[in-house]
Design a binder for these strands. Sequence first.
DNA 1: GTCTATAAAGCGATAGAC
DNA 2: GTCTATCGCTTTATAGAC
Lengths: 194, 194
Amino acid sequence: MNVKRTLTDRASAVPALAEAFREHGFEGASLAILSQATGLGKGSLYNFFPGGKEEMMDAVLADIDGWFYATIFAPLEQPRDPATAIRSMIEEVTAYFRSGGRVCLVGLIGLGSSGGAFASRVKDYFARWISALVHCLEAGDVPPSQAQSLAEETVCGIQGAIILSRALGEETAFGRIIGRHEAVLLNAVARHSR
Amino acid sequence: MNVKRTLTDRASAVPALAEAFREHGFEGASLAILSQATGLGKGSLYNFFPGGKEEMMDAVLADIDGWFYATIFAPLEQPRDPATAIRSMIEEVTAYFRSGGRVCLVGLIGLGSSGGAFASRVKDYFARWISALVHCLEAGDVPPSQAQSLAEETVCGIQGAIILSRALGEETAFGRIIGRHEAVLLNAVARHSR
DNA sequence: GTCTATAAAGCGATAGAC
DNA sequence: GTCTATCGCTTTATAGAC
């Protein structure tokens, strides 16, 4: 019971850490910031994460990966109806990234120099996303080569939409861009399953 | 003459600073790193950039903006032949970002917390890029609303392609994704100018 | 298990010799 | 104009009180 409790507390600190890393980046998020974000003292943080910031970031990335797998990837991989799965993905992604107001931490880490330490997590995240979307499109009778292209373009477009909507300072850009990707995906499955 | 000389030396330090900021980010690039990258001591750096790191980054962003305006934006705005201008943009962009091996510093800064201080530069960069591409497409008789969508999608796709090719660790992804965007743009101008 | 105090190192920035 | 030395301050990380 007491073992479970410490794990639970560690796990409950992860979302706060994630938000701090999102806002300040890996190097920018100091222990003082992380301490304030979680409400835990530095001592407690090192008790949960003996490896320091790196272990915290690793736990955050693992948590994000788990959430995406359960919420986005898994439904795409075994879709009852491909069109519904696509619509669901777009809806969840838009809510998760708050229309571009919230940064994709995995993408951000991949761009930075700190990315090397988390390269495999970053790679897996994007590879699994694309793979899941490919499976969904193929379930909608889209030819494999076209499914691969569409999946890559969609995942790219989402990352780009976050950058662009933040840069332009207009949240509406995100929905506009993502909406067009949704339409392209739905059009593809509708055309081929016809 | 001596005035010109100091300006030249300051300017010649900017590309090295840019590369250091690209590799380490704004917070990650310490003065020790910037000193090593430029070959100048901290004293010399502060002589050229009294405002410290912020002024260095601002000079870097101004330099990048100037290069993009001359090389990419201006040719798009007054295209002799839209298709040629588009092909040239893709070629220059691919070389500049080294097929995704080189990060887009403007996009990276826009994602990070340090972006606030450089928000107007980041915004202008993307707004001008999209605007220039829209003008080029309209010169190719693409309807305005469609030109705006295509331009947004292309700029997004380039940013996303950098993230994805780095994350997946395959440089080929960049050319593949950007090539499809190029084809879409060329197809649009060919179809409407027909 | 959580805190405060503290260590050692690195940070941005400045001063002053040359 | 360029360097070295140095100032405060913040950083990560640890130690020890409770």
